[in-house]
């Protein structure tokens, strides 16, 4: 079964139950397969349930109908095989950069010397050398997200779940972080599921882009977006620009529909 997908999402529904008001169908019959070491982007307007899908894969929310399989096993809760990175970093503010990265290694029971070294390696990898003893409140947004990425990579998950990780950053930092992420991904290849509403970001980073529709969230189409990521001028290449344009129209339709339904 070498060709079998690593992550299988099979007809998953999800009901969102707000504290007040009626329940909403957030995900409707969503199915998706992701291969080992593949980079897939989930793209859609806000409220399409793309983050919810990510939390289901992470095991933070219970799968009620349908199934999510990782390497053939049903997801029953969070586990260190899947690491998550959030939009607002979710760093422990009372721990330093080093302390944040060490936390997961401590929980795994790694010997002290080994985990200290590993933490420094990952601080090095994300380019935070010299900031290891800073608290998150002393860091810029980009540095916070580097710390969060290092923290997640350090405990060695096979799968990286990223929930709009660059959504809270300014445009320049965001562009920098995107190429940084590609560099890291090429050095430590992992399966990545990347949630975003930025079309260019999705096309640039991912091998495939799953475009989602809103209310209820469905997967509308899956578009192949394999480009040569090492080409410095890729963002200006004709094929790339056309691909972005094509997907942009798909998303725009959905965004308009979502707006209309809300009103």
């Amino acid at each position: 079964m070498a060709s079998a997908a690593q992550i299988i999402i099979d007809r998953v529904n999800h009901l969102y139950r707000p504290p007040r008001g009626r329940e909403v169908l957030a995900l409707d019959q969503v199915s998706l397969e992701v291969a080992n070491r593949e980079f897939v982007a989930l793209l859609g307007p806000s409220g399409c349930g793309k983050s919810t899908l990510l939390y289901l894969i992470g095991g933070f929310l219970p799968v009620e109908t349908g199934a999510i399989l990782i390497d053939g096993e049903k997801v029953a809760g969070p586990g260190p095989d899947r690491g998550i990175v959030f939009q607002h970093f979710a760093l422990f503010p009372w721990k330093t950069v080093r302390g944040n990265i060490l936390y997961g290694l401590e929980r795994q029971g790694m010997p002290k010397e080994e985990r200290e070294k590993r933490a420094m390696d990952f601080i090095e990898l994300v380019g935070l050398h010299g900031f290891e003893d800073s608290y998150p409140s002393q860091l810029s947004g980009g540095m916070k997200q580097r710390t969060a990425i290092a923290r997640t990579l350090a405990f060695g998950p096979d799968i990286l779940l990223m929930d709009e990780p660059f959504g809270a950053l300014d445009a320049q930092t965001r562009a920098l972080m995107q190429s940084e992420l590609l560099r890291i991904w090429q050095r430590t290849p992992k399966t990545v599921i990347f949630v975003t509403h930025d079309v260019q970001e999705a096309v640039y980073l991912a091998d495939r882009v799953a475009v989602m529709s809103a209310r209820p969230g469905r997967i509308k189409t899956i578009v192949d977006t394999k480009f040569d990521k090492n080409d410095p001028d890729i963002l200006k290449a004709k094929a790339f620009v056309e691909k972005v344009d094509e997907i942009w129209h798909l998303v725009r339709e959905e965004a308009i529909k979502a707006q209309g339904k809300r009103a």
Binding site: F60, G77, P80, A90, F92, G104, R107, Q108, R151
Partner: peptide, 18 residues
């Protein structure tokens, strides 16, 4: 307490006590 903080810790293997 933000749920993301708790999720991150559970992701890294923290149990109820921790």
């Amino acid at each position: 307490v933000e749920r993301e903080l708790i999720w991150s810790a559970r992701n890294m293997g923290a149990g109820q006590r921790e």
